[in-house]
Structures are given as C-alpha cells and as structure tokens.
C-alpha cells in the first residue's frame, strides 16, 4: 500500500484510494487527510461515543457538507466541538485506520480522483510520517506484550487475579467493564467508541499484567500470569487449572446484556469441572470460541456482514 501512496503523493493528487475491503485513504494535494477502515471505529462513533456531541449534529453536518464548506467547518461553526478537538479526533481516527491498513495486503485497488471526505481536510499527514508512526505503534505494542495471539480473540478477564492490588488506566477500566469473554478488542473498541489501536494496547498491557486469560496453545514463558508470589500453574494446563473452577462472567457488568448461551452439546471434552455445568458453561464455551473466530478471515467476514446489515437499516 505504501508504494502506491508514495506515487500518489509525488503526483500531488486529490482523491480517494480504495484498498479492497481493507479501507480507504483520502488524499488532498498529495497529502493524506483522512483514512478509514472497517477494522476500526468510524470517526462518527468516536465523536458521539459519550453523548457529549449529539449524533444528530454529526449526521446533519455530514449531509450538508459541500466542497466549499465541508462538514468539519460546520461542526466547529455550530460550536459542538473546538477546532483542536476536531483536529485531534481526525488525527486519532486516521492514525488508527492507517495502522490497520498498513498491515493489510489489498490486491485490488481503485483510485477515484477528486473524491473527498465529507469532513474536509483537518490535518495533513505525509506518507513517510504516517508509516513511521505505524512502525512506532507496532513496536510499542510488542513492547507491551510481544505476541499478537490475543489481538483477534475475545477479551476474557480472569475472575480472580494473582495479585493483591492492581493499577489500571481509565481505558483499561473501560475495557474490563465491557469485556464479556465474547467481544474481541476490535468489537470492544467499537462498543466503547475508542480507537482500536488504543484498545489493543490496553488489552496487551492487561495481558502483560496477568489479568487476562491467554490461550493455552501459547505455551510461551511469558504466558503465565506475572507479578505473583505463588508459583505459576504448570505450563501444559494453565487453562484447566486456572479458570475452570472459577465461575466466569456474571460479576463483570458488561454494557449490553450478553445473549443467552446455548448449552454446549458437541465435541470438545471439557477439562475437569463436570459438576459445575451451569456456572462453567459460559467460560467453557467462550474458551472454545477462538477456534471459530480467531481466524482473521472470519472476523473480516463478520465485519463486512455487519456493515452490510447496517447499510440496510
């Protein structure tokens, strides 16, 4: 993707570069002014997440946007947010999308000259700066927890943690409150109206602090909870020894009510814990979910499906 962008930047073009299903990058005079990807929350979601900015105002600004007076000017003019806030929001959203776009290998590309984003240019990025920042973010994720194994899996907080005291950032708190052992980091980001990268970083830091369940296949030395005085469970069976005896989920106040779960009928022998069928059911089924949803193609398919359904309503 980068080489295409560099070429477009050199030609100082204005328009939208569509990268397959991965997303779209908007350029203005050869500089990137907007980027979006279905893997990250939309800017509208970020703006209206905590109801401080009415969704109605954003929708109207979008519909009324013209080339002379793009939606961004309208929003600032109405006083729903300051110029600095709008700039920062665009900055967050573009870097967030760019991070996930830079990792994608889109085969089919299309460039629509003259196409503009409804917000209008609020912040200008040069292509080199964008890719440098994506690189820095990748390194930062790896420093936090050097494995991508949790990135696509449901976020499952431990019911009991091997520590007496925990310090959380406000975003980590939001993630834990919303985590229901079903939603992946990307879904949580959308639910919370926070950038997907920030949520991913929070999840990795939570994992590094030993507060999340990690898949048993990991088997890496760092996978066991750290910061504990007691010895870590045997590496072969961290899951069964750790999580199955502790009832999961009900005490975490998940924002939207979880769907009723079907009793588990097939396959997978459960390790230990037969007597606690009801209590363990959700944890156990959540534990086996990854085999179905961990695959990025599954996730992308679901995202596309959801987008299509949203477009219908």
């Amino acid at each position: 993707m980068e080489s295409v962008l560099i070429d477009l930047a050199e030609d100082r073009v204005t328009g939208a570069l569509r990268l397959d299903e991965a997303g779209t990058v908007y350029l203005t005079d050869g500089r990137v002014t907007y980027a979006e990807s279905p893997a990250v929350p939309r800017l509208e979601d970020l703006l209206t997440a905590d109801d401080r900015i009415p969704a109605q105002a954003v929708r109207q600004a979008r519909q009324a946007a013209t080339e002379d007076r793009p939606g961004g000017e309208r929003l600032v003019g109405q006083g729903v947010l300051t110029r600095g806030e709008l700039e920062f929001c665009v900055l967050s959203a573009v870097l967030d999308a760019a991070y996930f776009l830079s990792g994608s290998a889109a085969h089919r590309r299309g460039f629509r000259p003259g196409d503009r984003h409804w917000l209008g240019p609020q912040w200008y990025f040069d292509v080199a700066g964008l890719s440098r920042e994506c690189e820095r973010r990748r390194a930062q994720l790896d420093r936090a927890w050097p494995s991508g194994e949790l990135d696509m899996l449901p976020v499952a907080p431990l019911a009991r943690i091997p520590a007496q005291r925990v310090v959380l950032t406000s975003l980590q708190w939001e993630v834990l409150v919303a985590a229901d052992s079903v939603a992946t980091p990307a879904e949580l980001a959308r639910r919370l109206g926070r950038p997907a990268y920030s949520v991913l970083l929070a999840v990795r830091r939570l994992a590094a602090a030993g507060l999340l369940r990690v898949p048993e296949a990991g088997g890496r030395p760092g996978a066991a909870p750290i910061g504990t005085g007691t010895p870590a469970p045997a590496p072969q069976t961290p899951q069964s020894s750790q999580t199955s005896p502790t009832p999961q989920v009900p005490q975490t106040p998940s924002a939207p009510p979880a769907l009723p779960r079907r009793p588990k009928t097939t396959g997978e022998p459960r390790a230990g814990g037969e007597p606690r069928e009801g209590a363990v059911g959700s944890a156990a089924s959540a534990r086996w979910l990854p085999s179905a949803t961990g695959d990025p193609t599954d996730v992308n398919l679901l995202i596309r499906l959801r987008n299509a359904l949203e477009a219908l309503t």
Binding site: R52, E85, S92, L171, R194
Partner: peptide, 8 residues
C-alpha cells in the same frame, strides 16, 4: 481529557 481518546 478529550472525548475520543484519552488524554492529550
């Protein structure tokens, strides 16, 4: 505090 991502 900002509404979108925290803090600046």
């Amino acid at each position: 505090e900002t509404v979108f991502d925290g803090p600046l």
